[in-house]
Amino acid sequence: MTLEEGQILFREGAPGENLYVVRDGELQGKSTLGTAINTYGPGALIGELAFLKKEPYTETITATEDCELIEITPDALEESLEQEPAWFRSIISFLTGRLQIAGENKRKSDKIKALPSLLYILDSLSSRVKANEETKVSHAEVIDGVEKLFNLSKDNIEDLLKILEELEVLKILGEEIHVKNANVVHLLYESIRFRARYRKTPPQILSMTEQMVLNAVIKTVQQSTEPLKNGAFTVNTESLLKVGKRAMFGATLTLRTMLPLLERKLLNASVPLGDGAVLPEIEAIPFFFGDFDTILDLMELNRIYPLLDKKLVK
């Protein structure tokens, strides 16, 4: 068959049927999923997976000059395979499946690798317009930024945004993206960056015991009638112990369990604890204090962090 310059061989999404071999001339393939342009010259094959798997064509192919093509129909394939030994069909099917899997793995790996770029852009845009709690950033600016930084297609960026939406990190509202808590986005980005650089758990990721202690602290603060002072909370030890009994699922709240949080200044004791070698009984400390938002942000990060990897590899 021949095509004149500018003629379309097939459109993206059209049901896959024939395979084409370019004999002469040049064609270009463009997909709405990316900006890359594929060029097909003499000897090139067009539409292999669509031909073998009967899947829709993945790009629109246009002749950029007058072309001559060989059209291979599914009947021609069947006729050829009938003349080959039975095992040969298995090899074709294996190679097809392997190409498909490689494509899927590539798409998955692209998304995983693009997440830091998306968080970097979201963090940067959120910090520019940081409001009280919820921050609005332009949907188009996010897409534009990630596309320029990482060269990920719009559809894949949207998929990543949806994952973050499912994790309640943000909400997509038409032209705007509402970032629920810009600090959490920043913490998430820094945690992933730390993990990639040092190949170990980021310091922001808390142990189960630390999370249970902070959960007890949050509940105590929420039940308290004492208002926050510039975001700082104070909880008296008696109330904390009462809440701790219920909130720590059998674990006992002691200064030893609280020590890692005290050392990191997430919690502060109202009396000095020395070097921590000999700790007093928790009842000897009248109250604890700290920054409430820092604790809430950290707990939110610890909720999201383990879920994110699972969502990405799904």
Binding site: L19, I92, L95, R98, A102, G103, N105, K106
Partner: peptide, 14 residues
């Protein structure tokens, strides 16, 4: 050519 193309494309994707 089809077999070679399936192989080459897989290699490129990997």
């Amino acid at each position: 050519a089809l077999i070679r193309s399936l192989s080459a494309k897989t290699h490129l994707l990997k």
